[in-house]
Structures are given as structure tokens and as C-alpha cells.
Design a protein around this nucleic acid. Structure first.
Length: 572
RNA sequence: UGGGGUGUCGCCAAGUGGUAAGGCGCCUGGUUCUGGUCCAGGUAUUCCGAGGUUCGAAUCCUUGCACCCCAGCCA
């Protein structure tokens, strides 16, 4: 794990409890975990939870027991060559590192194919596995249902010699895909469907991104995973809830191989609830559909909960780690509120993002009593009083400025303390101005607002009256034009419709992306570096887009809005 | 109707027989040249329901109920 690794959370959860007991009982002297993604897609925030857990555990116990050799492996679970690709491996590694973790060893399940094959022959020899030649459909029929027992395959009592011969010929490529499979001989009537003579190997005449054409038979997850764990000396194999039924098989594989294989550890599997977030989609299938159906711009579309998307959106790794720590690790299925995630990024950026002035939807203000050609360079702090950082820049002030459309109202409610006819507001870091006249077009749209300023109010409160509101502004003459992309929640529904089809596409929030052009940024933002984050005062946190922002032609993404108690109260 | 799991505040989540942590959200008030931040206070007489054991139960027992997972040659 690298230096940017998370401060160890004080976290305690059922997994840490189990580990502590194991250590205390001296069942283990160290903790070895692994993060085992299948390289067939991009990582998302749900994976981040698993990453933080597995890598976090190794980090914590290395702190606690420095000599223990506790570690976390990155292992690609590459047992299905038809879906997997090196491209995904690269993306996954980038994401894990970006999150702040470094693996203690990079492995592939395919590293162990030869061993797995050897063990399979052993199992056959021990009468614990056999080659089955039932068709796909027959296999399904023989398996039974959740409420009725399955029945034995007619090939179940094949002799060891025959199975061994067939299995070797499977490897040799003598059969077509689907002609034979290797199965564990367990119990076709077992109440746990996973134990009804599960498949161990299938034939796939497909090149593998790591092993090339070396194999045409590939192990199944339930066989490959426990073996990979055991070979690597994993002590605690952590996965999600849907694998609870597989644990019995996991144990079967290890128990039946451990004496023969002399594994360095007897790993145990523990399951925790995967992360769900409202207002978005997390399943691989739906993410893939959004990307392939061009409903989003790619895996790194800022609307997506993918790590790549969140990175481009402007999320920090620290905020994602803090989020993962905040949701905890437990066994109850749950859906975390997006507000929790938003809190984490605001909380992080509040300390890190310099404040800056930017008008997104401009409306022009002319200050009548301000000299035509005068320009004042006003000093503005990058940080609010509560952030202990130093730094200022000069912002130019002149007769014509832009303010936000939302900061002016023709007929304001009583508790609106921004600009309105006859009302006075403070311009941030500058003067107080009073609205004198509103120029509208034929349709009644406000074209321009004419104000006067009070020269006595620079750095001083007006005398004899109090001005409650402060609004942001940008000098028209000095403004940097920019494109700003306003991002919001992917879905307009808390949860996508449950259907197996593409129904969830109808739930896409049409305002999840709103592209604004002609935005007016303060001059200092012209040279913003791609990836640089700012708070646009009173509006939210923004990042210069890594792909599209160019010096002189900035493009900003909104990471998250600021909390807005005014807007909230207005909604009621 | 089989098996494996889970049910504590709107959302997460501690708690493992001694009288309901914490975070998010929400509400109040204060501070404030960001209606941000920060600060102070409030927000479950109750732990899926019903019985029972006990001086005492979210925690033990009994019995219901709800939800999730398992019938890919995916992981």
C-alpha cells in the first residue's frame, strides 16, 4: 500500500471481529486478503467498498503487527476467456492505484491453471470427480429444482480410468465445446443447489488473454477461487452475500485437496453486503448497456458511479475512502443514500478547494455611478475564514459586471435577500450596489439591470442600514468565457425499475447533464489546469475537465453543489 | 412447499441480559462579505410481529411475518 493510503479507520465490524478472534486464538499470525475482480468491465463505487475493506485490512494489521507480513493481493479472476480482456486489467489497476492502494503482488487465477488441472486429476483418481457427457439441456433437467432433488447423471459411475482418459483428451482438444464437463461427485439431492455435482471444468476453444492457446478447458469460479486463495495463503477470503451458498462448495474443494496439495493456508470465506446507492445503477449489465447504447459518453462519463466516471467528475480518492468507511461493513442488504456520498466529497473539498467567482447563467449589471473606464483590482482570498490556508488573487472590478440570474428577482418573496428592484446587496469582495432600474425586452425578459454603488462600502459595512445578502459577480470586460457541465444524479428515481429489460433507461434523469456555454469566469480561471478543483462560491465544487479543458478555453464539470438551504426552503 | 441469509430512527449502523452509540438527512437557534463552513440544541419510551423466561430482554426461548440469494458449461 502506498503513502496515500487511508488513515486507518477506527472501524470495527463483524469481519474485523472474526480476524481479531483468529489472531487471538492463534489460528493465524497475519492477515492476507485479496481483491479478486474479473477483468471483464470497469470498477465502480461498489468495488471501492470491497477494495477499501480488503486493502484496508492488510494495511491495518500491518500497522498493528508490523512483523506479520499481512498483505493484500490483487488477483484477476480470469477463468472465462470469452469475456475477459487485458484492457480491463489496465483500467482496474489504474483505478485501484488512484484510490490510493498498492497491491502486495499481482496475480491471476490463470497462473494456477496447471496446478488446478493436476488437482482435478487427483480428484478424479480419488473418485471425487467425473467427466459428465450430458448435454446442456440434460444437465439442467438432471439438476432438479430448489424444491425437488436432482438425479444422478448416467455418467456419474464412469470408472476412474475412463474419466481420467476423457479429461486428458478434453485438455488435448479432442472434443468440441460442451461435449463433456468435469464435475465434482457430491450429492444430486443436496438442498444446496451448488452442491449438486457442480461443474469444475468446461471446454472452451477460446484463446485466453493471459495463457493464449495453451488451454481449451477452463476451470469454473467455484473450483478456481478456493484453490487460488489457498495457493496464495489467503487467510480471509471476503466476498459479497450472493456467494453465501457457494461457501459450502468452497470448503468442499479445499477440504478435499488440502492434504494432497499442502496449501500454505486453510482460507475461510466471509460474506458482506454489497454496496447499493440510490439514484444510480450499479450492475455490470446496466452499466454496460448505458455505455454500449451510447446513453452516456463512455465508462468515464461523470454521471456514472464507475471509479473512472467519478474521477472525471472530480471526486477525490479521499472522499471515496471516507464514504466507504462511513457506510460500514455488515450483512444486511442496504441502499445508501446518495446524500451520504455527496456529504463526503463536500467535506473533503471544503478544506481543499480554493474559492473563486464564476457566473454560470449571467445577467448584466451596469453600475451607473461608476466611472466608465475605471478598473479596480480588488484583493480576494482563496480561502474562507474557517479554512486555515493563505492565498489571494486580484479580481478586476469595473462598470459592467455579470451576476447570476438566480441572484436577481423582479418580484422577490420577503425573505429573499439578493438583488431586486430597489434593493441593495453586497458584491463579494467589492461594493454594495442598489438596483435602480430594470431593462426588459418586449417579452418581459430582463436584459440588463442598472444599479448604483456605494463607494463607502469597500471593505466596510454600509452605514445606517444592513445588507444581508452577498452575491458573486465577474467583471464583464475581464471575464473568461467557458463551458460548464452541470451534473446531477443519473436517475430521477431512487431505484431503477426492477425489470430485467432496459426499462431503467426511461428513468435516466434528463437533467443529469446540463451543458452551459457562455459562462463567465473570473480571469484567474483562464489558465486552470485540467484536474484542478475549485469551489465556485455559493454554487458548488467544480473541476477543470481532464479531457476537454484547455488553457484559455476552460471546461468545468460540476462535482457537487453546495448545500443550499435557500433552495431547499423554496421548494416547500 | 427445499436450503442459505437478513430484519434496530427517513438512509447507513453500533449493540451479544442491565435499562437504545455514531454518521448522513431533517428541524431550531447562533456566527458569517459564500443562504457554504463552523457552533449549540432537537430528531427511536423503542429495536419486524405475537407469546414466554427473567428483578431486568434489541439481546435468551417459542412461534409467526417480511425481504434477499440459490435451478449459467458467468463471477
Amino acid at each position: 500500500m502506498n503513502s496515500s493510503a487511508p488513515a486507518p479507520a477506527k472501524a470495527s465490524d463483524f469481519i474485523r471481529d472474526i480476524i481479531n478472534e483468529d489472531l487471538q486464538a492463534e489460528r493465524h499470525q497475519k492477515v492476507i486478503t485479496r481483491f479478486p475482480p474479473e477483468p471483464n468491465g470497469f470498477l465502480h463505487i461498489g468495488h471501492a467498498k470491497s477494495i477499501c475493506l480488503n486493502f484496508g485490512l492488510a494495511y491495518e494489521y500491518r500497522e498493528k503487527l508490523p512483523e506479520s507480513g499481512s498483505r493484500c493481493h490483487l488477483r484477476f479472476d480470469d477463468t472465462d476467456p470469452v469475456k475477459e480482456d487485458t484492457l480491463f486489467e489496465d483500467g482496474i489497476q489504474e483505478d485501484v492505484r488512484w484510490l490510493g492502494f498498492e497491491w502486495d503482488g499481482l496475480y491471476h487465477a490463470s497462473d494456477y491453471f496447471e496446478k488446478m488441472y493436476e488437482y482435478a486429476e487427483y480428484l478424479i483418481g480419488a473418485g471425487k470427480a467425473y467427466v459428465c457427457s450430458l448435454s446442456d439441456a440434460e444437465t439442467k433437467e438432471y439438476r432438479g429444482t430448489v424444491t425437488t432433488a436432482g438425479k444422478n447423471s448416467p455418467y456419474r459411475e464412469r470408472t476412474v480410468e475412463e474419466s481420467l482418459d476423457l479429461f486428458r483428451r478434453m485438455r488435448a482438444g479432442e472434443f468440441k465445446d460442451g461435449e463433456h464437463v468435469l464435475r465434482a461427485k457430491i450429492d444430486m439431492a443436496n438442498a444446496n443447489m451448488k452442491m449438486r455435482d457442480p461443474m469444475l471444468y468446461r471446454i472452451r476453444h477460446t484463446a485466453h488473454h493471459m495463457t493464449g492457446d495453451k488451454w481449451c478447458i477452463y476451470p469454473m469460479y467455484d473450483y478456481a477461487h478456493p484453490i487460488s486463495d489457498a495457493i496464495e495463503g489467503i487467510t480471509h477470503s471476503i466476498c459479497t452475500l450472493e456467494f453465501e451458498n457457494n461457501r459450502e462448495l468452497y470448503d468442499w474443494v479445499i477440504d478435499n485437496l488440502i492434504d494432497y496439495a499442502k496449501f500454505p493456508s486453510r482460507p475461510h470465506q466471509y460474506e458482506f453486503a454489497r454496496l447499493n446507492l440510490n439514484y444510480t445503477v450499479m450492475s455490470k449489465r446496466r452499466l454496460l448497456e448505458l455505455v454500449e447504447g451510447k446513453h452516456v459518453s463512455g465508462w468515464d462519463d461523470p454521471r456514472l458511479p464507475t471509479i473512472a466516471g467519478m474521477r472525471r467528475r472530480g471526486y477525490t480518492p479521499e472522499s471515496i475512502r471516507a464514504f466507504c468507511a462511513s457506510v460500514g461493513v455488515a450483512k444486511a442488504n442496504s441502499t445508501v443514500d446518495m446524500a451520504q456520498l455527496e456529504f463526503c466529497i463536500r467535506d473533503d473539498l471544503n478544506q481543499k478547494a480554493p474559492r473563486v467567482l464564476a457566473v454560470l447563467k449571467p445577467i448584466k449589471i451596469v453600475i451607473e455611478n461608476y466611472p466608465d473606464d475605471k478598473v479596480e483590482e480588488l484583493e480576494a482570498s482563496y480561502w474562507p475564514h474557517d479554512v486555515p490556508k493563505e492565498g489571494t488573487r486580484l479580481v478586476p472590478f469595473s462598470k459592467e459586471i455579470y451576476i447570476e440570474q438566480d441572484d436577481f428577482m423582479l418580484e422577490p418573496p420577503k425573505d429573499y435577500f439578493r438583488l431586486a428592484p430597489g434593493k441593495e446587496v453586497r458584491l463579494r469582495y467589492a461594493y454594495c450596489i442598489t438596483c435602480k432600474e430594470v431593462i426588459q425586452d418586449a417579452q418581459g425578459n430582463v436584459q440588463e439591470v442598472r444599479c448604483t454603488y456605494d463607494p463607502e462600502t469597500l471593505g466596510a459595512n454600509p452605514v445606517g442600514r444592513k445588507v444581508k445578502g452577498t452575491i458573486h459577480w465577474v467583471s464583464a470586460r475581464h471575464a473568461q468565457d467557458a463551458e460548464v457541465r452541470l451534473y446531477d444524479r443519473l436517475l430521477s428515481l431512487e431505484a431503477p425499475p426492477a425489470g430485467k429489460d432496459s426499462e431503467f433507461l426511461n428513468a435516466i434523469n434528463p437533467e443529469a447533464l446540463q451543458t452551459l456555454t457562455g459562462c463567465k469566469l473570473e480571469r484567474s480561471l483562464a489558465e486552470a489546469k485540467p484536474g484542478e478543483r475549485f469551489q465556485f462560491e455559493r454554487q458548488g465544487y467544480f473541476v477543470a475537465d481532464v479531457k476537454d479543458s484547455k488553457p484559455g478555453m476552460p471546461v468545468f464539470n460540476r462535482i457537487v453543489t453546495l448545500k443550499d438551504s435557500w433552495a431547499r426552503s423554496q421548494k416547500k
